[in-house]
Amino acid sequence: MIKYHPDNAFLQSFATGDLPASLAAAASIHCEMCSSCAQTVQSYTKQAATDGFSALDSRTENAEACSYRSMSSMDAMIEQITKDEEQDMASENQSKTIQVQGKQFELPRALVNIPLGKWSSLGRLSRSRLGMNDGDIRASLLLMEADGGVPEHTHKGFELTLILEGHFKDEFDDYGPGDFLMLDSNHTHNPQTDTGCLCYTVSNDAQHFTKGFNRLVNPLGYFIY
């Protein structure tokens, strides 16, 4: 059972297309696993459509009827569009399976067409950077193998972790497929997994390790997220 969901503001921004691609992908993946959040997104979409396409008030309508385009250029655009005889086919359900450390995973729909970077491994962690090209925001697939974990750390920016398969736990709770965790610099945690776990992660800054030896290897933060 999914315990952690994106908040409504996040779902609303997703519905209106206002999230950066990496975060929109996180919302999309979560909704693929959570019918309740998918319905919430549908409601926000419907709401945005109703608000956006409601009657233009007369002043806007008038100003834009003048500045927008003359009727003749509108007709030209209509003419040009309707000359095209083609119809688009419904998009098919693509799927993509990946293999990491001898295990197979089916990728969520949102990631099927995103290029995956080379997997690099460190101990029981493997990471592949996703080619989202999303500015400062980095998205990755992170595999924690059974009995592995991430050293205790905090985050300078935000760190979003969405579990695709498997479970992990930290000092607060345990988490399973679909759980959506948005953490910031107020959170320090130390995820551990008994069974192995594949996550989709998004971060806008490196992790910052807080304890002992790991504090000396803070550059590791850049490796993981």
């Binding site: 691609a21 999309s28 693929e32 549908q42 998009s91 729909r109 099927v112 067409n113």
Partner: peptide, 11 residues
């Protein structure tokens, strides 16, 4: 990549 279809299609 016209990602939108992959992101919203299922919803």
């Amino acid at each position: 990549d016209n990602l939108s279809d992959d992101l919203w299609g299922h919803i």
